[in-house]
C-alpha cells in the first residue's frame, strides 16, 4: 500500500513539481518498490493520453485574433 504522502509526491513528480532531492529519493525507491514504480508508470500513461485529447481550433479563429492585434497596432 502506497502512503498518501508518497502518492501525492508521485503526482508532483509526473508534473515536474517535486523538488530535486525528493525526486532523487523517489527514483531510488522505484528500484526496490514495484508497486510504486507501477503506480508512476500508470500515471505517466494517463498523462500521455490526456495530451492526445487536446483539440485544435480552426485556423480562422486564430487568424481573427492575429488580425485584431495587428489592427490595434496600426491604430496606435
Amino acid at each position: 500500500m502506497i502512503k498518501t504522502s508518497t502518492q501525492n509526491e508521485l503526482i508532483q513528480y509526473v508534473y515536474n513539481e517535486l523538488a530535486d532531492d525528493a525526486c532523487t529519493q523517489l527514483e531510488a525507491a522505484f528500484m526496490h518498490d514495484n508497486e510504486l514504480a507501477e503506480g508512476c508508470s500508470e500515471l505517466l500513461q494517463i498523462q500521455n493520453l490526456l495530451d492526445t485529447a487536446l483539440k485544435s481550433p480552426h485556423q480562422r479563429a486564430v487568424q481573427n485574433i492575429l488580425n485584431y492585434s495587428k489592427s490595434l497596432s496600426l491604430q496606435s
Binding site: 485544435s56 481550433p57 486564430v62 485574433i65 492575429l66
Partner: peptide, 13 residues
C-alpha cells in the same frame, strides 16, 4: 503569433 500558436490548443481545449 508564436505565443498564440504555442498556446491555442490548451486554451481552446
Amino acid at each position: 503569433e508564436q505565443l498564440v500558436n504555442r498556446h491555442k490548443n490548451k486554451v481552446y481545449t
